[in-house]
Design a protein around this nucleic acid. Structure first.
Length: 194
DNA sequence: CCCTGATTCGC
DNA sequence: GCGAATCAGG
């Protein structure tokens, strides 16, 4: 992975949106290790990890017991998924800001934003048999302003195939993260080009 | 088993 | 700096 400014920006954006490391990796065509490794090096804010290593286990338990208070009671502002898929990021945000609070958070991990999720959708409230299968439309012409990212995802012809639904950068056919992949700086390309 | 994220450490 | 391997939890 060559971490161009665009790639880093894409990583920051996706990270700030709360996507899982694996999801970010999938979107950027890299491994989740690469994502988490880079995120770590960039000092991006750690997100709730399922695991606790020794050091932090002690750090968490000891002081909590010492204070005897209930810090946990009032503190759980974990980012709530918000329904409205607004622009993931303003196009060329020059600010070095690590996190943009104004960003609309998307539903994490379980169902990112892939429309394909609808195909494999769980159907909890299905008491009886379902005669009509869910719409197989992968990406209806939902061009809000006509600027959905047209980055292809998956193998064409397979059920998983779909297009990215993020909003494209103005004047470009791709969203920020895919633009990062699609447009490689000439400078960066020169030594590995064709 | 699948998933998650964090850290380690050879490169 | 990079990221696979590994760890650790759900």
């Amino acid at each position: 992975m060559d971490w161009t400014a665009e790639a880093i920006e894409a990583l920051r954006t996706l990270w700030a949106e709360g996507h899982s490391t694996a999801e970010i990796g999938r979107r950027m065509g890299i491994s989740k290790n690469a994502v988490v490794g880079k995120a770590h090096r960039l000092n991006l804010p750690a997100r709730p990890s399922p695991i606790r290593r020794e050091s932090e286990a002690r750090a968490t338990v000891a002081p909590a017991a010492a204070t005897a208070a209930e810090p946990v009671a009032a503190a759980e502002p974990v980012a709530e998924p918000q329904p409205l898929p607004v622009a993931p990021a303003a196009a060329p945000a020059p600010e070095p800001e690590p996190v943009r609070p104004a960003l609309t958070t998307l539903p994490p991990a379980t169902q990112p934003i892939a429309p394909a999720a609808a195909l494999a959708a769980p159907r909890p409230p299905a008491p009886a048999r379902r005669p009509a299968p869910p719409p197989a439309v992968v990406r209806p012409f939902q061009r809000r302003g006509g600027r959905s990212c047209c980055w292809p995802i998956g193998e064409p012809g397979t059920p998983e195939f779909r297009f990215c639904t993020a909003e494209a950068i103005p004047a470009k056919p791709y969203c920020p993260e895919h633009a990062a992949v699609a447009y490689v700086k000439a400078r960066d390309r020169r030594d590995d080009a064709a």
